[in-house]
Amino acid sequence: MQAARTQSKTVSAAAFLAPFILLFVAFLLAPLVYAFYTSLFIERFGEPIFVGLRNYINAFQDGAFWSSVVNVIRYAILQGVIMIALSLILALVLDTKYARWKPLFRLVYFLPYAVPGVFASIMWGFLYSKPLDPLLQAVRFDPLSSAALLYSIINIATWEWAGYNMTLYAASLTGVSSDLYEAAIVDGCNEIQLAWHIKLPLLRPTILMTVILSFIGSMQLFNEPFLLSALTPISQTFTPNMDIYAMAFNLTNLPYAATLAVLLGAITIFISACVMIVARVVGRRSRERSTHLMSSEEVLSA
């Protein structure tokens, strides 16, 4: 009887997991395997020729690709820091007792996320265009110049995603017991101390998740610079995805494009794993330090 129940639970769990597993295999695992398989060939006169890892050797010597990787990592760091800091500030301000009309402001801040990225890029492209923007005509600043282009793209991405991350932080804060806040206020904490010493530590897992998701999204940067290239000259190797797109569809070199795609995926996974490891080490040391301080206080009080 017990064995039958265990088997029934196993079958039920498998049935619930089956849709996810099928989609995961069909749209993530299978394309990755096929991309790696394609990267092992070159095309000569329309015929595939097996060359092993030669494409990867060429990719490691491709200065344009690695320059685009460095460029997008710089974008990921700058955009991630600005966006997450802004999202945290908005969430913490709306979580204070002084905030009014909280549902309205949460909706207003979240609305840019509802705008598709392509439409957002087109809209901001019009705003960045000096012939179409009277304000830019009055000042001597061009957001689409080579010096300001990266920061203009950061502005678009922050406008799109800050409200989404703010919603995640606000949702995490709603799960915290109000008794914890009341105890801190009784001990003399003001709103700033409450946010710094209680809310931010409690948000650490959510912050880590948004940091990793933000980095993964940043490494896939494509829509914004690709659409803005219609308004200003942008190199086809500005980002790795633009380089891969040009290699696949402009130069029709699909094997090498697959090689670059596999390398980009490996770089993204490696850096994301490093961020998780560092965050866990820092979190463990922080907990050990807190435990040590509590133990020291107990000894002194005794």
Rank of each mutant, 00 (worst) to 15 (best):
F119C: 15
N155V: 08
C189V: 08
F119I: 15
G117V: 12
V69L: 10
T158G: 04
L180D: 00
Y109Q: 07
F105Y: 14
K130N: 14
K130M: 15
A184M: 09
G188L: 02
V118F: 09
A148F: 11
S68H: 01
Y109I: 12
F110C: 03
E191K: 12
N190D: 15
A120K: 12
P116K: 05
P103R: 07
D62C: 01
A85W: 08
L90S: 02
A64P: 02
P116C: 06
L135P: 01
A183S: 05
F141V: 11
V69Q: 03
M83C: 10
W124G: 09
V93H: 01
A171K: 03
L127E: 13
W66P: 00
A171P: 04
A138R: 14
V108I: 14
L92N: 05
V176R: 00
S146D: 15
L194T: 10
T158C: 13
A184W: 03
L144T: 01
M123R: 09
F126A: 14
A99W: 05
V118T: 14
A147D: 13
A170L: 09
K102W: 00
A138T: 15
D187E: 14
V115Y: 09
T167D: 04
I122Q: 10
L194I: 03
S87K: 00
L144K: 07
N190I: 07
I89Q: 02
S145A: 13
T158D: 06
G175M: 07
A91I: 06
S178D: 09
G188N: 07
D187C: 04
D133V: 14
V176G: 05
S67C: 08
Y151K: 09
F119A: 15
D142M: 11
L107F: 15
R140C: 13
A170P: 05
L136P: 07
